[in-house]
Amino acid sequence: MTLPRSTQISLDATPYYHCVSRCVRRAFLCGRDAKSGKDYEHRRRWIEARMHKLASIFALDNAAYAVMSNHTHIVLYIDTYTANSWSTIEIIERWQQLFKGSALSQRYLRGEALDAAELEKLQEVTTLWRERLTDISWFMRCLNESIARQANAEDNCTGRFWEGRFKSQALPPAWLT
């Protein structure tokens, strides 16, 4: 029986995690499809650009990666120290690079006065966003969803592009030597 990722991730044990995502329906992620003759190599640039953009937003660093013909390998480093140093404004600005945010966060960024209850609610929301910006699942969601939409549009099809959720495995400190 598989365990939820929340029980598999222990930052006390290691901040490094190896994540793998596979394509479905014999879809090509990148490279040349020998059967059809189509070249999908440009998708490698999509993935690399998206990974680097997400790494600049999240408190997760790409320690290593490989983009294969039908799957990706990414080694992520969770940088909680950096995330904990972010101000409320930094968290909101980072989150809003990916998502709309809330009316409350938008008002806060515009410098509008917020009452005590609104500030308390904003603090709750930014605490949640800080957690998500250090979360492997949120990182992989933002990466894989974007690539799937682009690939499905290019392939003129709908449905799943990735084989379920990504797989992840903790990398013990011995891996680093």
Rank of each mutant, 00 (worst) to 15 (best):
M1T: 11
T2P: 13
L3R: 07
R5V: 06
T7F: 03
I9F: 00
S10T: 10
S10E: 05
L11I: 14
L11H: 02
L11Y: 06
D12W: 15
Y16L: 15
Y17C: 00
H18A: 02
C19M: 12
C23N: 03
V24I: 14
R25N: 05
R25Q: 10
A27N: 04
L29I: 06
L29Y: 00
G31S: 06
G31N: 12
R32I: 15
K35F: 08
K35W: 09
G37W: 07
D39C: 07
Y40F: 01
Y40K: 11
E41N: 12
H42D: 03
R43H: 15
R44E: 12
R45I: 07
I47W: 04
I47M: 09
E48I: 09
H52R: 14
L54D: 02
I57D: 08
I57H: 05
F58E: 04
A59M: 09
N62A: 13
A64F: 03
A64L: 04
A66I: 11
A66W: 14
A66R: 10
S69I: 09
H73N: 00
H73V: 04
V75N: 04
V75I: 11
L76F: 02
L76G: 01
T80G: 08
T82L: 15
N84R: 09
S85C: 09
W86D: 01
W86M: 03
T88G: 06
I89E: 15
I91N: 03
I91E: 06
I92E: 08
I92H: 14
Q97I: 04
F99K: 14
S102F: 04
S102L: 12
L104E: 10
L104P: 01
L109M: 03
G111Q: 04
E112C: 03
D115I: 03
D115V: 12
A116E: 15
A117G: 06
E118C: 12
E118S: 02
V125W: 11
T126K: 08
T126E: 02
T126R: 04
L128D: 10
R132D: 01
D135L: 10
D135G: 06
D135S: 02
S137T: 11
W138R: 07
W138D: 05
L143T: 09
E145K: 03
S146H: 15
R149F: 10
Q150C: 11
A151S: 10
A153G: 01
C157Y: 03
F161R: 14
F161I: 12
R165C: 10
R165K: 13
K167Y: 09
S168M: 06
S168P: 02
S168D: 07
P172Q: 03
A174Q: 05
A174P: 02
W175Y: 15
W175D: 08
T177S: 02
